[in-house]
Simulated assay, not measured.
Amino acid sequence: MSPPLATLPLAPAIGIGLLAGGAVGLLHFVGLRYTVRLLAAGRTGLALASQGLRVLLSALLLAALFHFGLAALLAGFGGFLVARHVLLRDRAAIHAPPPAGEPRP
């Protein structure tokens, strides 16, 4: 018989939260890009289904992390935000304007 999940030590709970939050955060924000493209293409039904799936997956993750304890839940939020930052930084680097004085390609 395994011990209850909420009795995990602090370090494993934080590790599980960061990894799970980061993975689901990457899926969430890549899915957001896909949802926006669907909306721009006029495919509203698929866009709403994609939005619902993203929100449901994120909510399920946070509910699951809650069972590992508050530290895992907070680390999951942190992993989610780190994934958002990484994806936004990646997109900003691709679409960054050229420095002043350089001609545009």
Rank of each mutant, 00 (worst) to 15 (best):
R104I: 13
G101N: 10
G22E: 01
L81P: 01
P12G: 07
Y34D: 10
V36T: 06
T44D: 11
T35V: 11
L65G: 09
V82L: 13
G25H: 00
L70G: 07
E102Y: 11
G21S: 09
A93F: 05
P12I: 07
A13L: 07
F68E: 01
A6S: 14
A72T: 02
S58F: 10
A40H: 01
Y34Q: 07
G76T: 06
G101P: 03
G25W: 01
L10A: 13
L27C: 12
I94S: 01
R91N: 06
L19M: 12
A72L: 09
L62M: 15
V30K: 05
G15V: 06
A96R: 15
A93P: 00
L48Y: 11
R89W: 13
H95Q: 10
P12N: 06
H28E: 04
A71W: 08
L87S: 02
L70T: 13
H85C: 04
F29D: 00
A23W: 04
L10D: 03
L32T: 05
G31P: 02
G78A: 15
A63F: 14
I16N: 01
Q51F: 15
A41R: 04
T35L: 12
V36G: 00
G45M: 05
A59S: 15
L48A: 14
G79P: 00
A96T: 06
G15W: 06
G21A: 10
R54W: 03
H67G: 13
E102L: 15
L46F: 06
F77N: 02
L53Y: 06
G78Q: 01
L27I: 12
R54Q: 13
L74F: 13
D90F: 04
F77R: 02
T35R: 11
P3C: 05
R84L: 12
V55K: 03
F80P: 07
A6R: 10
V86R: 03
L60Q: 12
L70A: 14
R84P: 00
A20I: 10
T7P: 02
L65W: 03
H95S: 12
P97R: 12
H95D: 13
V24D: 00
G69W: 08
P9W: 02
L5S: 04
G15A: 13
L38G: 00
G76Y: 00
L26Q: 04
G25Q: 01
H95I: 07
A40E: 10
P98I: 04
H28P: 00
G52Y: 11
T35P: 00
L62D: 11
V30Q: 04
G76L: 05
L81E: 00
L39A: 09
I16P: 02
L74Q: 08
L60V: 14
V55D: 11
L62S: 10
I16W: 11
L57F: 13
H28T: 08
F77T: 06
